[in-house]
Write a protein that binds this DNA or RNA. Structure first.
Length: 694
DNA sequence: AGCACGCCGACT
DNA sequence: GTCGGCGTGCTC
């Protein structure tokens, strides 16, 4: 490193240095080349490839690369060469990163030389390496796989540009919306003072939360440290981005979004890596952003499924956040309108403190919540036409009359469990094989989902009714029906393929699938929020159905006006269900606590740790036979699961006692390595913290 | 994962 | 004697 200080790479003379070396050595064998005099050994983590055995390899540094081959640099190395007459030949080129420069290798054999330094930019800092190692261990994955999630692809042009010098740090912000939480001002003050408080934050309804996050970030920056905010989707990133820009102006933070394109994305990532900005916000991958002197990690809505990475080894943003905060001594703010069971667990162990408003404040800002079962009579003819319970119909009418839009949340089609009797709810089954009946399209005859037999003459075997309700009506048909029921009121839809960010504050019907709800412009909110077909969400065969339903409801209900301004939420669901009760009382933390206690009793995650193991029956049995599980571990199954590409598949769940998670992960990894070595070939997919346990 | 090396059975 | 089966182990 030069004497220009920690931001040296951003300065002009450093830039010139980078330009000069563009004619960098191309990959060649470096036969007979002189090796570097100082620290001639480079320890390399070889990227990807088939190196299931997760370890480092040492290479010789040719003298020509002595300067550039620094720790953290991207390199190319030859791997798997054969030695012919004392000379190594061939070997495939692999990408990798230098993790250290050493005086001497502990490898007994002769070292191959580095083939090429792709770039001297030190993208893999010691901290990032440590984090990725920890995450790989936590998820029984390889370091190389995690590095691929953590470090974006290089873009040479972006790298050649200087990053701007860092702007002066801001003043500590006023408490603002944090005053509404008894512990809020102290939390901000601790951040500004260099402390590391950890909080599970049940955010009050309304449009304030992006500003609360922005103030927490501002306080951390004011205290001389950096901050990181991870959000579940592009829209929420945009909201926090705007709040930060309003509070701090541009230039103190960056938003790292995949949609930016490779060049801009890498440019911004480098600005973080080079210490040119102190705060990064973005989706999932932002969790690894190499913010310096990390003082705060914020995760918004940690129950959202997009925080779970679909790529191996499937790390979850919240878990990475906790690992990272622990390692770097940073504060944690785990926030959302809902609270996850994991959040409740952190509170119950005392690792984090609850950051919640008192009941009086909640009452002031929350909408009024009314429950209604969908058996309630549709007394009003117009309500009947719209298939709305009259309470919901009235709430909608009042909102429209007051000049505000109405939000109607409709479960996505994918949530539909199955068809059932329109009167008594008995599932509609095939007379031949008991399989579930399906409606291929609106007017086509019914068909069995298992045997394919057509059913033209269904009636309920329990109550004799001939009415078969297409139980969850999709957003489009709801829109058509409501449009007829409320003539001359504009109808807008927001869903999977066409998500609206905002709607104007004027009378309209906004039909949305969960997670796609637009925000009302001007910050006032919806006059009414109707949560339809709640039973469909609640009855999904998933361990998290209750928790997830409440999360989706609270997210929509949080967009309503306060009760004092007439804001009303109508939830169509069984009033005694726990999530319904929690919504009525607006008590997300209480709900999460109850769920946590129940899971603890049942030995379910997150109190216990689980992993799933799936593949062909033989392969799964083989791995279960090989694995040396920690004491007290359970094996559940294996049971058959839906075939993948026609191949028979099984899955087993492994469960360990609290505190044995690391032991489980390392046992899984050891068993995987042993299987590869034993050439039993057939792969077994291992997943720590599986998401789809019913 | 590839791709070697290596130690046992039927061939020219 | 030699060719070649794929079990076992390594890749800096």
């Amino acid at each position: 490193m030069s004497s220009t200080g920690e931001n040296g790479a951003a300065e002009p003379e450093q830039l010139a240095f980078i330009r000069e070396t563009v004619k960098r050595a191309k990959p060649r064998t470096w036969k007979g080349a002189k090796r570097a005099e100082h620290l001639p050994v480079a320890r390399v983590v070889v990227d990807k490839g088939v190196l299931t055995i997760d370890k480092f390899f040492d290479y010789e540094v040719p003298a020509a690369m002595a300067e550039e081959a620094r720790p953290g640099a991207r390199v190319r190395v030859r791997f798997g060469a054969r030695v012919v007459k004392g000379q190594r030949e061939g070997g495939e080129l692999h990408d990798g990163f230098i993790v250290a420069r050493l005086e001497k290798s502990d490898f007994a054999g002769p070292l191959a030389p580095l083939a090429q330094v792709l770039s001297p930019e030190p993208v893999l800092s010691p901290q990032l390496l440590r984090l990725c190692r920890t995450v790989a261990d936590r998820y029984a994955g390889t370091l190389a796989d995690v590095l691929q999630l953590a470090i974006p692809p290089r873009h040479a042009k972006a790298e050649a540009e200087p990053s701007p010098p860092p702007l002066p740090r801001p003043q500590p912000p006023a408490a603002g919306g944090w005053q509404r939480y008894p512990a809020g001002p102290d939390f901000l003050a601790a951040l500004a003072g260099g402390g590391s408080p950890r909080a599970v934050w049940a955010a009050l309804p309304g449009p304030g939360w992006p500003y609360e996050i922005a103030r927490a970030v501002a306080a951390t920056l004011a205290g001389g440290r950096g901050a990181l905010v991870v959000l579940p989707d592009r829209r929420s990133v945009a909201r926090v981005d705007q709040a930060l820009t309003e509070l701090l102006g541009p230039g103190l933070h960056v938003a790292l979004e995949a949609e930016l394109g490779p060049r801009e994305r890498y440019r911004r990532w480098l600005a973080v890596s080079r210490g040119s900005v102190h705060a990064a916000i973005g989706t999932r991958a932002t969790m690894f952003a190499p913010v310096r002197d990390l003082g705060l990690v914020v995760v918004w809505s940690d129950g959202d499924g997009s925080h779970s990475d679909p790529r191996a080894p499937h790390p979850h943003v919240r878990e990475v956040a906790l690992l990272r905060a622990a390692d770097e001594g940073a504060a944690v703010l785990l926030g959302g309108h809902a609270v996850t069971v994991e959040g409740a667990q952190l509170v119950s162990t005392g690792w984090a403190r609850p950051l919640v408003a008192d009941r009086e404040t909640v009452r002031q800002v929350a909408p009024r919540v009314r429950t209604v079962t969908d058996q309630d009579q549709h007394r009003d003819a117009a309500a009947q036409a719209a298939r709305l319970p009259s309470v919901a119909w009235e709430a909608a009418r009042e909102s429209l009359a007051a000049g505000h839009p109405v939000l109607i949340q409709v479960p996505r089609r994918g949530y539909v469990p199955r068809l059932a009797c329109g009167r008594c709810r008995t599932p509609a089954r095939c007379r031949r094989c008991e399989g579930p009946l399906e409606a291929p399209s609106a007017d086509a005859p019914l068909r069995c989902g298992w045997c394919g037999e057509a059913e033209n003459d269904w009636h309920c075997p329990e109550c004799g009714s001939f009415r078969l309700r297409a139980q969850v009506v999709g957003a489009r048909r709801t829109a058509e029906e409501l449009g007829k029921a409320f003539p001359r009121i504009p109808v807008r839809t927001s869903g999977r393929d066409a998500v609206l960010d905002t709607v104007p504050d004027e009378p309209s019907l906004v039909i949305s699938t969960p997670g796609a709800e637009p925000v009302v412009e001007g910050g006032g909110g919806y006059g009414a929020v109707l949560l339809l077909d709640g039973w469909a969400l609640l009855s999904r065969p998933d361990l998290r159905a209750g928790e997830e339903t409440l999360r989706l409801w609270l997210a929509a209900a949080a967009l309503a006006r306060p009760s004092g301004e007439g804001g009303t939420v109508v939830v169509v669901a069984e009033p005694s269900a726990r999530p319904v009760q929690a919504l009525v009382r607006w008590d997300p933390l209480g709900h999460a606590g109850l769920e946590r206690d129940e899971r603890a009793q049942l030995h379910f995650p997150p109190v216990s740790r689980m992993a799933s193991v799936s593949g062909s029956p033989a392969a799964v049995a083989d791995l279960l036979n090989l694995i040396r599980l920690p004491e007290g571990a359970d094996v559940l199954g294996p049971v058959p699961v839906p075939a993948l590409r026609g191949e028979e598949q099984e899955r087993a769940l492994l469960r360990v006692e609290p505190g044995q998670g690391a032991a489980l992960a390392s046992a899984l990894k050891a068993a995987q390595i042993a299987r590869i070595a034993l050439r039993t070939a057939e792969a077994v997919r291992v997943r720590v913290d599986p998401t789809d346990i019913g």
